[in-house]
Nucleic acid binder design. Sequence first.
DNA 1: CCATATCGGACTAAAATGGTCCGATATTAG
DNA 2: CTAATATCGGACCATTTTAGTCCGATATGG
Lengths: 147, 147
Amino acid sequence: MQLTVATEYAVRCVLHLAGATAGAVVARREIAQARAIPAPFLAKLAQRLAHAGLIRIQAGARGGYALCQPASQITLLAVVEAADGELVLQPCAAKPQACPRSPACPAHRVWAKARRQLRATLAHVTFDQLAAQEKPPTRTRKSAWTS
Amino acid sequence: MQLTVATEYAVRCVLHLAGATAGAVVARREIAQARAIPAPFLAKLAQRLAHAGLIRIQAGARGGYALCQPASQITLLAVVEAADGELVLQPCAAKPQACPRSPACPAHRVWAKARRQLRATLAHVTFDQLAAQEKPPTRTRKSAWTS
DNA sequence: CCATATCGGACTAAAATGGTCCGATATTAG
DNA sequence: CTAATATCGGACCATTTTAGTCCGATATGG
């Protein structure tokens, strides 16, 4: 019952992008170095984030990663689920036969509730908030997110 | 990010004991059969539960397991943590250096909050509630609830 | 065209998980 | 006391997941 380091890395990565000039492409290597993420692993991870529509990947010379949306619209939940897969507590989620047989396990509704709570909590934290917390001294010099 | 089947089994096991006559010793085999738990695995699991002070193990002939406390005092959280270890979300929980270096990761307070919520939710569900929910449909023939 | 830099998939190593086995020990029945 | 029962508790094993690497293919900028 733990989030994986992939999640941790994903958060760091998006956090880094959220701190960069809006929409700017940042090289993989730069992110990896700045945030202590093994570069090849970040590559793999980035694909999951891209697949989820969170970041845009630019291949080729001067390539790298950039956010697809303003940081204010990217939730922690979205990043967590992009990295780790859907957030599910129930151990028997995949198995339809659920608990033994007869009694619809009474714990299930508790799992479901806990899951809803957890997802809600993560869903209403956005990366502009996180980025702001991370760099209190830096006065947003040119955060012209003109839209 | 999922609870393990060990957790699922543990819940089933305690649920079974909660449904039995209060304080009665139930044979491992009986629990295993009734709740579809591999018996040898239940043995291992039971030790964790016993170590956590949730159940009492009686060795020898006519041995088995029994609750140490009334079901009303056993929370879902206690069982989950006994089976799975402490409930921690932070990927970098064990690592003191936390996030890279400088910026105390702003996500951490979110993980912490989510964790508190989750634990609170599980902590205020007790096994007498769960057992009660389980029983109404299941007319256990010998449910001598004579206490 | 060429250097750069990512894609994306195959691959490996290590850890966690789920599960089994068995000798030792405890308890009860006779 | 002894035999039968039944768990302990730790070693052991198989599978899956996780973390991480490597490399040929492909895309891009200059």
